[in-house]
Design a binder for these strands. Structure first.
Lengths: 339, 339
DNA sequence: GTTAGCACTCTTGATCTCCGAGTGCTAATT
DNA sequence: AATTAGCACTCGGAGATCAAGAGTGCTAAC
């Protein structure tokens, strides 16, 4: 167990290090107004804190630096609720002021605002379509042999994909097929489209359409193949501002990781509801083990549909960032619910 | 005028520097099989080349490094046609092998391939829609008050935008309006949509639709407001591999420039037909003045519709890169024409 | 005209020193 | 018993110094 004094000292060390990125010495701590002990006393406490693994030295006679265990303790026990300034709140709220009626717009704007306000890299995993349903399906013929399939969801999301129509398929058949599908599939959740197609409709459809299989395969390809990774990333260059990434080789490995959107997407897809923080080696991805990742989820009708995340150095402004993520994720959920 | 020997030496210096990024000394040059003079002779020639401004020293007793004037001369006069390896050609050709029928897919794939093959940053300015025409216009109602407007072009490009329907507008009117517009505007070039709407159709439309103005304004907003910046950028992290960007502060200014997509878009939009090279300070954008930018254009039916560019250090592999850009832009033009 | 030779210049890396910030420990103080 | 002052010690960082090496410019010889 940590004494109150140790708690105070640990708190000061971490707060200070978050600001300056410099090791903190006993003298500097004793000068803090909230601290009223001599450097010698503090040195004793620091030795204990170090023994317990909450802080570290960079070399034998340096000041102390928080360890990952220290950050973890800080995040779990020492985090003070942070009051966002009125301006900050306003900026976040403003994102939702214009009448944006599309998920995508909201998300794009949020990513930008978040990275600008925090100076970290922000990542949003766009709303998953689990709950969205098919609103309308349509084929637009571009020429004899090419067409675009367009799929509109009830959330205003539009997917489209071009394809070539093989000469074996009768365009009229395709047309008929689409008409039937529209009647039968409107309102069906997107994720269930595939199984619905397979299980329930084949029987009905064979009656209407010759060469069914061929046409179906084409439609399936057009509509379902691409599950796009709706990952939005902003402020990647902010990493350059952090002294911990002065080293180009570190940057390179981190950046090439971030460039792999599917990897990032999978990582975030696993996030638990609410705010969650992974510090350094708590991250499974190697390239992130010098970073902290804070995730928050947002929801539609109480059901989690996406994730907002901030990636920065372990030395993040946890408390401020958490407040911002909370506010943003609530606003997002509210907005989506209102639609 | 440069003597043949001077040309040879300049060529060797630049070729070598492009490979190694290290200053080249007279001894190293004289060891090249293509060179048969002693270091002393070469030193004399180098002094002349330096006086003329084609090469520079990094310090008084260092080897020589090409100046921007040197690169310019090299690019204008010394560039040998580069023969792409069979594999390289194959990789580029493969981009077009699958039956991609959408501009976007082709462009996205090209950007990736290009940056992977060159290790530079590749930028493609997506096809401008000047020549594309409206294929179909459609409104899908999501709810009483929201809808998505979808616009399909003859090239398979799909634009969409959600909007809220103000209560003053009669949904039936909107429907009617869209029907009429579809009949009247199909086949009209996208860029002319706006003027067409204003000039020719207002008269006809007033007969059919009450509250015309309101409905029109909404449609215009939905369809024409956003001219999206179709800029695709790949391999940004490749910059980290170049020794000239070891310095984090240089990287930062360059990266924050690249992050501004509209700036990049405007820059490329101005590119002249064919291959064009800007070296260092020939670039107007400050942040690029340590870089070279090579642009190539591609076309549809002989009309330039977009730009491919590679951004790298001044020490670029000009000749290889130019061959690749040539091949790629031709293939792109061919493919688009074939549709 | 070309090249060998040589003195000179400048970078690079290694080694050393000095300074200061910070520590741990002990002994004095409260 | 807890706190603090005092002090010796440690280590990193900034400079200074030095030697090695790569490269140059110039002169004189070929």
């Amino acid at each position: 167990m940590l004494s109150n004094r140790q708690l105070l000292i640990l708190q000061v060390i971490i707060d200070e290090f978050i600001q300056t990125a410099q090791p903190i010495g006993s003298r500097a701590i004793s000068k803090k107004p909230s601290v009223s002990f001599s450097p010698a006393t503090i040195r004793n406490e620091m030795a204990d804190l170090e023994e317990m693994g909450y802080i570290e030295k960079t070399h034998s006679s340096s000041g102390r630096v928080p360890s990952e265990k220290g950050y973890r303790f800080y995040v779990d026990n020492l985090l003070l609720p942070f009051h966002l300034s009125h301006d900050d709140k306003q900026i976040i709220t403003n994102v939702f002021d214009q009448d944006l009626v599309e998920f995508e717009q909201v998300v794009q704007k949020s990513v930008r605002v978040l990275s600008e306000m925090t100076n970290y890299t922000s990542i949003i995993l766009g709303p998953e379509v689990y709950e969205t349903t098919l609103k309308q399906l349509q084929i637009v013929h571009l020429s004899r042999t090419t067409a675009v399939a367009i799929l509109v969801t009830n959330t205003g999301h539009v997917e489209h994909r071009s394809f070539t129509i093989p000469s074996e398929i009768n365009p009229a058949d395709l047309e008929k097929l689409v008409n039937i599908l529209n009647v039968k599939l409107t309102g069906v959740p997107i994720v269930k489209l595939h199984s619905r197609l397979q299980q329930e409709l084949i029987a009905i459809l064979t009656d209407y359409v010759s060469d069914l299989e061929l046409a179906m395969n084409y439609l399936k390809g057009a509509l379902l193949d691409q599950q796009p990774n709706n990952v939005y990333i902003g402020g990647i260059t902010n990493m350059l501002l952090q002294p911990e990434f002065n080293d180009v080789s570190k940057l390179h490995s981190l950046y090439s990781m971030i460039e792999q959107e599917d990897l990032v997407a999978n990582l975030l897809r696993a996030s638990a509801e609410g705010i969650h923080i992974s510090i350094g080696h708590e991250n499974k991805v190697n390239e992130m083990q010098d970073c902290s990742l804070i995730t928050a989820t947002y929801s539609l009708a109480g059901k989690q549909i996406g994730t907002i995340a901030l990636l920065g150095p372990k030395r993040m402004e946890y408390s401020r960032v958490i407040s911002m993520l909370n506010l943003l994720s609530n606003r997002m959920s509210d907005t989506f619910d209102r639609w």
